[in-house]
Amino acid sequence: MTGHFITFEGIDGSGKSTQARLLAEALKAEGRDVVATREPGGSPGAEEIRRLVLEGDPDRWSAETEILLFTAARRDHLERLIDPSLAAGKIVICDRFADSTRMYQGLRGPGLRKVVDDLHRLMIGREPDLTFIIDMDPTTGHARAKGRNGTEERFEDFGADLQVQMREGFLALAKAEPGRCVVIDGDGTPEAVAARVADVARDRLPA
């Protein structure tokens, strides 16, 4: 018995966290066994790393150090939650996964994307069955993210230019992996976007 692994990706402020939650709620209401989780985090050790990487000054860590920290958190998350849940036949819905590391860290220097991919193959070795990329205008998304005034704003503080790069990177990823990635227009009410997501999910999930 194997489960189904669904991830949500997108720039800051795209609404992907809301959409991950709404899909989990919708599938649970249909009687499906769903585990909702997030990255970085999802396991006790990974949550500790989350605080290290998402809080503080933008220059607190180099991109290379972040790659190592995120990979360590992901490995713990995989061992303790994702793999056991999938082995039990559950649907795992994760707010961000390796594609975020490919964008946030992999785009910030020459050769870093290869470092991310090489570490992923070595230490993680799993891709989602389905990835939703919630597409949003970078200026709108960045303003929305900054307006949250939370404590985890370290990546938002890199500025709107990084969001532009990441949007281009996510769209290029979707084009390169159309069997896994589905781009969803993030404009509209959360409910309207959720309806688009749910239509795709129900079409892709086993009956």
Results as ranks from 00 to 15, higher is better:
S85H: 14
V183C: 09
D185F: 12
F70M: 14
T131D: 03
D199K: 14
F97V: 15
A88C: 15
D129C: 00
F5A: 06
R96G: 10
G31A: 00
E153W: 15
R154H: 04
E152Y: 00
M123E: 14
V34N: 04
I11N: 01
V34I: 01
R126F: 02
A195C: 02
K114P: 11
G169P: 00
L130C: 00
P84M: 12
G106F: 06
R154N: 10
D187W: 09
S100G: 04
E64G: 10
A145V: 05
M166I: 13
G15N: 07
G159I: 07
T37P: 10
A72W: 04
A195F: 10
S17F: 11
V183H: 11
S100K: 03
G106C: 03
G42I: 08
I6H: 00
D157G: 02
I184G: 00
L69S: 01
K146F: 12
A207E: 15
G186T: 15
M136R: 08
L81M: 15
H120D: 15
R51Q: 07
R75V: 06
S14P: 01
A174N: 04
V115N: 09
R196V: 04
G179F: 05
L130V: 05
D137R: 14
R144G: 04
D33N: 03
F5R: 13
P58H: 07
I49D: 05
V92L: 05
E55D: 12
R51D: 11
P128A: 13
G56N: 13
Q105E: 08
A46D: 06
S43W: 04
L27G: 04
D57E: 06
P84S: 13
P138F: 14
A88Y: 12
V193A: 11
D137N: 13
R202P: 13
T151K: 15
V35A: 01
R148K: 05
R196H: 04
